[in-house]
Each structure stands twice: as C-alpha cells, then as structure tokens.
Nucleic acid binder design. Structure first.
Lengths: 338, 338
DNA sequence: TTGTACGCGTTATCAG
DNA sequence: CTGATAACGCGTACAA
C-alpha cells in the first residue's frame, strides 16, 4: 500500500536539528525564552524550523516536564450572560501570558465530579471553577482524590481551605449597595437571591438582610430562584408581586446579580405594567454589557474582572500555593434603575 | 532534604498493575471500552485502580496514539450573546461523546493566525471556528501550513474547499425571512449587516436585497457595523434614522443576527422614541435567549444548533474528511417584533 | 555554549 | 486473553 507522500509527516525537533545541522537539544533551546544559546545558532534553528513548518509539541513537553500550561475552566451556568464576560476576560489574561484553557461544560447537576475527573485526566496545572454547582462536598471529594495542583474559585468567595478564592469582597460590596439603597430613600426592599448551593453564597443575601435589620429594625423580604436565569427571575417576580395587591409592594428589588435583575426589570414592565424605577427600582450585581443598554440602564456593582483575571495568572505562576485567597474591591455603577 | 510523603506521586498504570497482579497492558485494556479482556480481570484491575486513585493520563495517550480527542474552539466575538449558546451546545455535544474542548480566545484582529498556531501546538484533532475574523487568507495560510487534521467552520457557510462548513442554509433562511416580511405587508425594509470579513458572509445580505429587488423592483437600503455588538447596532440605527426626518422612514429593519436586532430595538425605543413593531418592526437571526424575553419578543430565525453540534461530532469521528459540508434548515420563530 | 542518556505514561503490534 | 517490545516527542539532568 502506498504511503501518501503529500501529507507532511509530523516534523519534530529532530528534523529541524538535521536541517539546521545542530543537535536536537539545541533546537529545543532555541524555542525556550531563557536559554543559553547564541543568537546566531538560534537564528539558524528558527530558519530551519520555519522552512519545515515545525512547532513544538506541547503534549510531549507536558508529559516530560509535568507542567502543561493548561488550565481547566469548569462552567455550569450558561444562562447567565456574565459568564461570557468572565470567559473572555479569563481566556484573554491566560492566553496573553502563555496559558491555554480547557473549557469543561458541567452538563448537569450531578456532573461536577465527572467534569473534574475529565480535567484531571488532561493533567491540567489548575482547575478554575466559575460555576455555582460546586458545593463543598464536591470540593472535598476533589481534594481528597488529590487530583489538582490548584483549585481556584473565581468570582466567588469560598471558605474551603483547600481552595484558592479570587473574588470581590461580597460583604463590603453588599454593604455599599445597601447603604446606597438606604440613602436613596427606599423603604421596602425585596431581596432576590440565586441558588443556595454553597454556604458562602449566602454572603450577599445575609449581609444585605442583616445590614437592613441593623439600620431599620426590620428584616426585608427575600425570595430565590434555582439558577441565575433571567427567565426564572421574571417568573418569580410576577408570581410574588401579584400577591401583593398594591399594599406593601416593595419599592426596590435588590438582586444577587444582573442576570436576575434584567429578568426582574422585564417582569416589572411587561407583566406588572409598572415603571422602573418610579414604581419599583431594581439594582443588580456584575455590570454585564446589557446593563448599560438604553433599555435597562441598570444600577449595579462592577467587579474588577481584569485585575482578578491577572491575579489568577499570578497565582498560577507562583510556586507557593498557600494563602493566596484574595478579595478585590469593585465599584457601584449608578445608572437609572435605582 | 525530605521528600513530602503526603503528596501522592502520580499513580500510573504500572502501579495499578502491581497492585492487581497483572501486566501494565492489561490495565490499559481494562480502561478501553472495546478491548479483549475477561470481566474478572477487568474488575480486579478497576478495583485496584479505584483504591489507588488511578486515572489514565490523556497526555501520554495522545502522544502515543496521535489522537488527542481534543478540539480547539476559536472564538473572537464575545460581544455576541449567541456565542454563549453556541459554546454551550458545542461543549455539551462534544463532552457527552468523549471530546474535550480547548477554548482559544482570538485576542484581536490580527491574532487569528497565532491562535491557530496555539491550537496546533496542542495537536488537536480538529479546529472549530465560530468567529468572524477568520477570513480566506487566514484559512489559506492555515491549510498551507497543514496544521490541522480538520478545520471546521461552525454556523457559517464557507466556500473554502479545505474547510468543513456546518451551517444553516443562509439563502433559504433569508428567503424565508424576506418572504415573511413581504407577506406581512412591509414596504420599506432596511438591512442591517455585520462585519464583511469573509465573502460568504455576504450571503444573507445579498440574498435579501436580491429577493426584494426581484419582487418589488427596487433595492432596499442597507447599513453595516464592524462587529455583532448591540451597542454598535444601537448607535448606527440612531444616526441613520435621525437622518430620515420622518419621510421614507423604514417600516422594518432586517438584522443579520439577534445581537444587532436587540440593539436596534433598544435604539428605536429609547433614542428615537418609537414603538416596535407599530412604528418600526425588527427581525433578527439566531434566536438568542433574550429574544424570548417579554421585553423584546423578537421575531427571528432559529438554527438547529443541537443537531448541528451533533453532526459536528459525527464529522470528528468519521475518517473520511472529504465532502462533509452540510447545511441545515432552521425555522422562523414568529413573535411580536415583526 | 552545546551534546548525551534516560525517563515521562501511554498505545500499536506482535508473540504466546 | 495476556505479556512484551518499540515507539511517541520532548525535558531534565549532567557532561563535554
């Protein structure tokens, strides 16, 4: 049987070495940034590599060095538009500093463990969680299996000791929001929370309720949905506010994030036929791109995602993995919805 | 210097083999679905693997087999909310059938080539393009460098012969839209197009303009933006329609996709203070989640993304790479915006 | 600055 | 059905 000669065999460092008249190891050095090699030799090697179309094989490099420059990004919450922003910022920071990203879709509620296993089989250098279904049990199991060099929770605080959490200071942020709500004179807030999978998720809601109680003496009402999905928010808002019959209707709805806030605004306008913010104001969290659209003009809290993503890469590149939790301060973006 | 003994060494097939009292090759067979191995042996091996926490190393497997079960997903257009849907559907189809996804963010306009190189260094089995900046030049260069086993353009038609295109039939879809617009009695459409990077992108716009001309004798106006970004759409709609001064104002704006359509609706309402669809109707393409929100109720065209994603995996799994282009039929989703 | 064993953990292939 | 040999392409020592 004939061999297809028009298909290029995989060109390896050996081929380049032969072409350039050096040893294979010199070829390798030419491709390393900080290697002791004379410029002349490097040029010669690079020219040969270029002509042959050689690029180093990162699989082999990873296998030999036990460092893959690969991170897994586990996502389970594609209904939240903020995820797209986070993915963009993260992949940008990672790639511009030499890291590749394995995107793992946590398919359903019970898939987190299998998704992690998936990542670990690729021997990623770190696993980043930007989802919501990663509860403490999963984290504990992952750590026990010792499958990860680094387990990073991004944009979520976590009290898990085996985990590195990079997030905004939820309590400070929520207090800033609560203070703003109070100063603007709102009297009867309703809190709309998201899924309650991880204990730390309670931070925003609890902080808000507590702040309000401390300052006014009574605890605001609160409701919740099972996913950060505008549709769900829309539904629950309609159901909840239909029950109020005009009396004691909330004058502002404080949402755990923008995904919920956008659905809330839609519902207030189109189901209840009320105005935002005149009848009911709305405040969010995240500052998704839509928040700035003329339709929503959502008052919300912006996380410093770029700084957070860059810090994440710092974490990846640091040898000492302990004590790297860090919180960031964001800023309240005041628009017109509250 | 002491060795940290609490850190688990990488447990390999050898370790499992020793534990189970078989050879290393038997361990490997136990992990392959279609391998000739006795159930008893497999059970024994799996038990040992479990107890040691062994999982096969996919790097090594890829290196040895020259099949990575990894695909690169190149994305450059994170402003378009539809990308999030596509990523979800693709990663879902891929992962549920055993494929992993390398997410590559094409950082800027000139980065496509470097992004592809990035992917090729991981020796992915295929590269999937769901962006817009991949023009014919880039594709030609990629093919010339013979860097890819398979180069798949997803949700975009492409006439490039070295590429596998999986997309809806743009012409049929656009004709369906045009026919609907006509039947609903609109007289003066304006077409809002996206970036013009690849020749095939012209399909939707040209098809619409031609259809309209053939049926009415005159060519509708058309405008365009450089990215599928609602903000840009919003801006250009405001500028363009401000110039119309009431006379000859379009009665419907046909948008190349939903990202543009949503921005268009926002602008019509909030900049021009007109109603949708009574003053100006809007029609989109993609059926993003927001299209169904009570705020937009966008009439649009839905692509059968799940079927397309599954077909993509079929392509990955088929040996014969030639002649796999395929177009799908979608369906018009009529809501209230047109 | 450059060259040389050896190992990384698996798969393909053949022997028994 | 099971065991064994030879790759796969590169990195890490260390020696020259």
């Amino acid at each position: 049987m004939l061999k297809k000669i028009d298909l290029p065999e995989n060109v390896t460092a050996d081929d380049v070495a032969a072409e350039a008249g050096v040893s294979r190891w010199t070829v390798n050095r030419a491709f390393k940034k900080a290697a002791s090699i004379s410029p002349a030799t490097r040029d010669k090697v690079m020219a040969a590599a270029q002509s042959l179309g050689y690029v180093p094989d990162l699989r082999a490099a990873a296998l030999a060095s036990d460092r893959s420059n690969l991170v897994a990004l586990l996502v389970d919450d594609f209904a939240n538009p903020h995820k797209l922003v986070m993915m963009e910022r993260l992949t940008r920071a990672l790639r511009s500093r030499g890291w590749d990203t394995l995107l793992v879709n946590t398919l359903d509620r019970d898939d987190a463990g299998s998704a992690m296993l998936n990542a670990s089989q690729r021997r990623v250098d770190a696993t980043i969680l930007i989802g919501i279904q990663f509860d403490d049990e999963v984290l504990k199991a992952a750590h026990k299996a010792r499958r990860f060099k680094k387990l990073i929770i991004f944009a979520r605080t976590s009290e898990n000791p085996n985990t590195i959490s990079i997030a905004v200071d939820d309590q400070a942020a929520t207090r800033e929001i609560a203070r703003y709500v109070m100063e603007r004179g709102y009297k009867n807030p309703l809190y709309l929370a998201g899924p309650r999978t991880v204990s730390a998720h309670l931070l925003r809601k609890e902080t808000f309720l507590e702040f309000w109680k401390n300052h006014t003496g009574h605890v605001p009402g609160s409701i919740g949905v099972d996913a950060y999905d505008p549709i769900l928010a829309s539904d629950i808002i309609r159901q909840t506010l239909a029950g109020y019959q005009g009396q004691e209707r909330p004058d502002i709805i404080v949402c755990e994030n923008d995904a919920l806030a956008l659905g809330t605004i839609d519902s207030i306008r189109h189901h209840l036929h009320l105005r935002v913010p005149e009848d009911i104001a709305v405040i969010g969290f995240d500052d998704v791109p839509q928040a700035d659209s003329p339709n929503y003009r959502l008052t919300t809290y912006r996380q410093p995602l770029t700084a957070m993503a860059n810090y994440l890469v710092d974490v990846l590149e640091s040898a000492d993995t302990s004590d790297m939790d860090r919180t960031f301060m964001g800023s309240l973006v005041v628009r017109e919805s509250a």
